[in-house]
Amino acid sequence: MAGNAKQLKGNTRWALGLNATLVYVFFYAPIALLILFSFSDDPLVGRWGGFTLDWYRAFGENEEVQSALGVSIRVAIMSTVVSVVLGTMAALALERYRFRGNKFFDALLYLPVIIPDVTMAVMMLLFFTIARNAASTIFGVDVSKGVWSVTVSHIAFSISFVSIVVRARIAGMSEKLEEAAQDLYASRWQAFRYVTLPLILPGIIGGGLLALTLSLDDVVITQFVAGPGSTTLPVYVFGLIRRGVSPLINAVSVVMLAASVLLVLLSLVAQRARGGDVT
């Protein structure tokens, strides 16, 4: 029985279990303490001074934070919508069709996932600067960076993540199902609408939630391509952190963390779902 080898014995089991516990403590203790201190009624960060919600109130009342949050949400929604559509189409093309240049396209689609943030940030900065110069010399128009350039950059990396998640879903779905639909008198569109789409929908939703998370969390790229008035919440917070810690940052951080954990959990749940019903 192969099962026997999986039974860890005595000391090994104990040591591995301890290591695993420590890893989880390592992962979650800092977060737990951060959450704890965000409720601490002490102007000194990292010291417990009794329970308070003041910092969250300050978060709600701080106009700069609120406007940054607004930008973040707008960018996240726009970039998610576009990247879900483009990423899903790309996933379908790569999993179900062979076309000229598909290998190259595949590689191009992976690059944004593995390229370091900083590199992508300078790429985009350079590109928008060149584009702006070109636009002003050729057309005489000024296209300053702003919410649009942030959105464009976020889409550029989100497409890849969406397409990876959706591709995994399509790969797990037998092509026979689409053939069966067509054998049962469905046109190509109907086969997609009633069989393919409902079955890959969890992947699309999961990918979309991931795109939303990535957009809401991104700092480095956004910082480079944001113009005046298009500061997102993470960029604003990053700026604050570089000047020092404060209980307000604790509260904002906890809100950001909660949002991203929630979205990640939803995404994981969606990706594991069985597929919607067609009515």
Partner: peptide, 13 residues
């Protein structure tokens, strides 16, 4: 019409 190998029943219906 075809009866597919492993049936290819639509799992979501």
């Amino acid at each position: 019409n075809t009866v597919f190998q492993n049936y290819a029943l639509f799992p979501h219906m």
